[in-house]
């Protein structure tokens, strides 16, 4: 059990050392510095700008949403995965 205690001691010593250099403290995604304002979702580069004129127009322009066979065939980069992806050979334990 002593080796376990030493392991935990050394693990926490490493973490505490991070705090001394304040590198760990900076990594935490905490409150914005004074004068700045955080805006969530910006990490997504504004792709989710729902309700814009573009979207509404798209809704008006489309004649209907009837399902067509061609809409059920994937036409993206998944061709680059193709049938090459493999599930695990045997389930682990």
């Amino acid at each position: 059990m002593n080796s376990k205690r030493n392991l935990i001691r050394s693990a926490l010593a490493g973490v505490i050392a991070l705090g001394v250099g304040s590198a760990g403290a900076q990594a935490h995604d905490g409150p914005a510095p004074a004068g700045k304002e955080k805006c969530y979702g910006i990490a997504k580069k504004g792709q989710n700008d729902c309700g814009t004129a573009t979207h509404a127009c798209a809704g008006l322009a489309k004649k209907d949403n009837q399902p067509d066979e061609w809409k059920l065939v994937a036409k993206g980069t998944c061709e680059k995965l193709g049938g090459n992806l493999k599930a695990p050979a045997a389930p682990k334990k």
């Binding site: 989710n48 700008d49 729902c50 979207h55 509404a56 798209a58 809704g59 008006l60 489309k62 949403n65």
Partner: peptide, 17 residues
């Protein structure tokens, strides 16, 4: 028309995510 606009907004939200 209203329905298509709603669907387009919902699909747009899913595209963004």
């Amino acid at each position: 028309i209203y329905g298509r606009a709603v669907t387009a907004n919902l699909v747009g939200a899913l595209r963004g995510a």
